[in-house]
Design a protein around this nucleic acid. Sequence first.
DNA 1: TTGGTTGGGTTCAATATATGAACCTCTGGT
DNA 2: ACCAGAGGTTCATATATTGAACCCAACCAA
Lengths: 260, 260
Amino acid sequence: MGTITKALELLNYFARQKPEIGLTEFVRLVDRDKATVHRHLTELTENGFLEQNPVTRAYRLGPSILRLSGVREATHPVRSVLRPVVSEIANAVGELTHVSLIHGDVLSPALHADPMTHGTQVAFDESEMLPLHATSSGLAVLAFAPEGMARRILKGPLDRYADGTITTASTLQAMLDEVRERGTASQDRAFDNEVCSQAAPIFGPDGEVTGAVAIAFPTVRDSDEKRADVRAALCDGMARITHQLGGVVPPEHADKWSGA
Amino acid sequence: MGTITKALELLNYFARQKPEIGLTEFVRLVDRDKATVHRHLTELTENGFLEQNPVTRAYRLGPSILRLSGVREATHPVRSVLRPVVSEIANAVGELTHVSLIHGDVLSPALHADPMTHGTQVAFDESEMLPLHATSSGLAVLAFAPEGMARRILKGPLDRYADGTITTASTLQAMLDEVRERGTASQDRAFDNEVCSQAAPIFGPDGEVTGAVAIAFPTVRDSDEKRADVRAALCDGMARITHQLGGVVPPEHADKWSGA
DNA sequence: TTGGTTGGGTTCAATATATGAACCTCTGGT
DNA sequence: ACCAGAGGTTCATATATTGAACCCAACCAA
């Protein structure tokens, strides 16, 4: 593993619940030598990717991140383009809606909207990468992904995240066939024991999958009626989002989302 | 210079005008060996900080940037907290308003709002770092910064950016005294030959300067009346922004901005 | 077809660069 | 006064980075 990767990995430990991390804690987290970690941290800090709380000396994400995300938004405005439509879906259904994009063999959350209409809500951590086999977003992606990706995942270890996680290649394969058929993926307690979700794929300019839009809600609010609503919202949403991002729904599959 | 810094520096070459950069172009830009640059680029790509345009194979900023900026926003919401107030100022004055934060010895833009009420407008590049001696934001910061920082800048080379750039330590020193007196900095043709600007400092929790809020407009629209308006907006804005960020205006200076 | 150019990407020996065990310093607790 | 745990530093060692040269594909012109 290269030095660059080692340093960048440090950034992944920051999350909503853990906005600041000290040197020693980092050493425990990544299990590398203190001197090494310290040098990485200072170098990241020098470049503005981290900044130090002057009183606790703990590190937190720095201003360069903001600057770069500004550039990316200005030139490739995924978020700002998506925000209105994702919010609209979230408000219509009344449940947390998020869009995630493929990044290697996991999904990277790009945007989420939470209507906050219920007392309980799904906690969505935008910093957490989503595994493909344990989320409805992942299944939606995999079902329409190129051969190689599905093969890699089917072969690889299928870690268990919650009681309902698919952990065998055969059930995953069967599930993917079903998703390909229906156009949307549905999961209950796959990633978290209290939430279920549905998702639909999003396509890029050449009709290739680039990510997924998903709606997640507490299992306790599940019902046949709700599922139908959610599915309808996703069928509508995936088309709009795909279109917004300059993508096209592959014609051979298009009918799956047009009807309902 | 460490490997990490070399790699991260690559990210700085992306800007609004240059959203995608190919391997060879990078080699020219940074003047390092192609193999080295390539390894850095691939490593950044593997970590999602870059992504490759599948057709041109050129690199652009990747999804991890979005993810991390989401985390930073969730835990340390500078942008979303600032957006309404900055927009409000921009709309009130009718000119481009931006907030920049100190990052080493330069300023890193954090947010800007452009009311787009005029035919011509200042082009603001959120990816460009602002030098302290050649921008009104920089002067506002320097005037209230700790000793050391001002000393470093006064000593260092004062590069010329435009016809009005301050390039001698003595005039800079005089200007800083004046800014400290007035509370706001004003510059004409310091960074760009067609724009002038005014700025006020922003303070952190311990009364230390953390950045500046500035209003920039084409020199052709300059007038005494406009200057007064802008200054008033900044005096109001700096207090609100400082407060929003959990900072306090140092009591010994506070009167400078309260009156007007 | 050939030959030339430009861009992306790869190889492998040489060496510059990252590493880690041990050490230092400061703070807070007892 | 002592200890524990935090952040940070040093310097010999070895490992990971480097760069000249090379390969390949696409494009262009003759």
